[in-house]
Design a protein around this nucleic acid. Structure first.
Length: 108
DNA sequence: ATGATGACGTGCG
DNA sequence: GCGCACGCCATCA
């Protein structure tokens, strides 16, 4: 841990709160953290802090409802498998139905 | 200091 | 619906 600014801490805390079987988008977390322009920081934090804080990184997808990792990378399958195991399914075009699976934040 | 990079987002054609 | 340009910004070379 060491010196995480409040934005990073907030982002990490939010990600950690996403319930099993729900997903959130990068931009959504950024907005909830109070900085709509921090979507890329959410991505960076997933890279750098997922292991350390045991974050449910697989529950973060892009605003299109898709897994952001290129399909030809093994990590794509890993994220997909983790989501499937939680009951999150892909619809047409490998898209996740946000109206059904998106974390609303009010309950957790 | 400068330029490139990226598990992003939005707008437009 | 898809691709592309552009905006954004911490991190890196």
């Amino acid at each position: 841990m060491h010196h995480l600014n409040t934005l990073s801490e907030t982002i990490i805390n939010l990600i950690a709160q996403i319930p099993v079987g729900k997903v959130a988008t990068y931009g959504q977390i950024a907005v909830m953290a109070g900085n709509p322009r921090a979507a890329r920081q959410v991505s960076r934090l997933l890279h750098s802090c997922s292991k350390k804080y045991q974050l449910p990184w697989h529950r973060i997808i892009n605003s299109q409802g898709k897994i952001s990792i290129p399909k030809d990378l093994p990590q794509y399958q890993e994220q997909l498998n983790r989501l499937l195991k939680e009951g999150v399914e892909l619809g047409l075009n490998n898209r996740i139905d946000l109206s059904r699976y998106q974390w609303q934040g009010t309950d957790d």
